[in-house]
């Protein structure tokens, strides 16, 4: 028996990564402009207006779609930058924009009626009432669910809403307060939610001290990793600290999401699309992860077992978890 095929939504930080994702089997690619309107505002990354239009044309010619993430929160007095990004994304032919901020959602619904809007994970809409509000107020067609929900909770939400849901299936994990985290802002004065970059590279310093790799963020030492131990990203949430008698990862272990084995349950829970994290990653990562999940999605659609894969070496900490989908805490 075959089932409806889940949509595979894949990351692209550069035009080369966009082409790689589509060639590897992405149904949809999400990307952002090279400024603070998107949550992966890293040096050398993202798209100019011309590159976005070329990328969308490449996708169109191959039957794929492009979503433009404009998912940071406009700064007071600088809203025009975000308004311009929405207008330019639609003008370039984007299938949808991915938004988080209430004001930007209202602006987009009013100024671009009938155009498709997805709700970013950054909006942290984690229950049916919140999602129904976004759908009714702004015409949101799809919600990217925060990574705090179990499969059972996702199923419960899908029973009470009429819009599509998209869930993360692979990649980096944040602490469980997407769109609300201020850890990086505290250490660097730059906000992931407004400037689009967590642990900005301008504030990160690595040094080799003996056999240890030492990572500092905004002058704070956040890791000291011995030789042959996997290194984490330089984020405070994955920092290694001493608190009282405890020394370790106080907030969160350096580990990435890999929920491939849960694809059948997520499909049964009513999920429409699976999202791969990693716009900051290379085309080598994009090619391998997209190819692996394309096979998994095809297997699921054909009613076959999900093929085994090992993407651990691409994951932070070289470890993976099913995260909150198999939540054992509350």
């Amino acid at each position: 028996m075959t089932q409806a095929r889940l949509e595979l939504v894949c990351p692209a930080g550069t035009p080369a990564a966009l082409r790689t994702a589509i060639d590897a089997g992405a149904d949809t690619v999400y990307c952002g402009f090279a400024d603070e309107t998107n949550a992966r505002n890293f040096p050398g990354l993202n798209f100019s207006r011309a590159e976005m239009a070329e990328g969308i044309a490449y996708a169109d010619a191959r039957g794929a779609k492009v979503l433009v993430a404009i998912n940071t929160f406009p700064r007071a007095g600088a809203e025009a930058l975000w308004h311009g990004a929405v207008a330019d994304a639609y003008a370039a032919g984007a299938h949808a924009v991915i938004l988080a901020d209430l004001g930007l959602l209202a602006h987009t619904a009013e100024r671009h009626p009938g155009r498709r809007i997805h709700l970013s994970v950054q909006a942290a809409a984690a229950n049916a009432d919140a999602i129904n509000f976004y759908a009714a107020a702004f015409g949101v067609k799809r919600v990217v669910l925060p990574r705090v929900l179990s499969v059972q909770e996702i199923a419960a939400i899908n029973r009470e809403i009429s819009v599509e849901t998209e869930v993360f299936i692979f990649g980096g994990l944040c602490v469980m307060a997407e769109g609300r985290c201020a850890l990086s802002s505290y250490a660097t004065g730059r906000s992931p939610n407004m400037h689009g970059v967590c642990s900005p590279a301008s504030h990160v310093a690595y040094s080799e001290e003996g056999a240890d790799l030492v990572s500092r963020l905004g002058g704070f030492t956040i890791h000291r990793v011995p030789k042959a131990v996997a290194a984490p990203y330089p984020t405070l949430c994955k920092g290694h600290f001493t608190a009282g008698d405890y020394a370790g990862h106080v907030f969160e272990d350096p580990v990435s999401l890999d929920a491939a084995a849960l694809i059948p349950q997520l499909a049964k829970a009513g999920v429409r699309a699976l999202k791969i994290e990693g716009r900051q990653r290379s085309r080598a990562y994009v090619a391998e992860v997209v190819r692996t999940f394309r096979q998994a999605v095809e297997a699921e659609a054909a009613g076959l077992a999900i093929p085994a894969s090992d993407l651990r070496r691409l994951t932070e900490g070289q470890q993976s978890t099913a995260g909150a989908y198999r939540k054992t805490w509350r």
């Binding site: 890293f42 040096p43 301008s202 990160v204 690595y206």
Partner: peptide, 29 residues
Amino acid sequence: DGDALFFSRDLVVEGDTEAVLALRNAIDD
């Protein structure tokens, strides 16, 4: 993948991290 090489400790970066990221992303593209 550059991040994976960093995680596995096969790659070491020092100094201006912004410059390293910009070069890596520019070359990858």
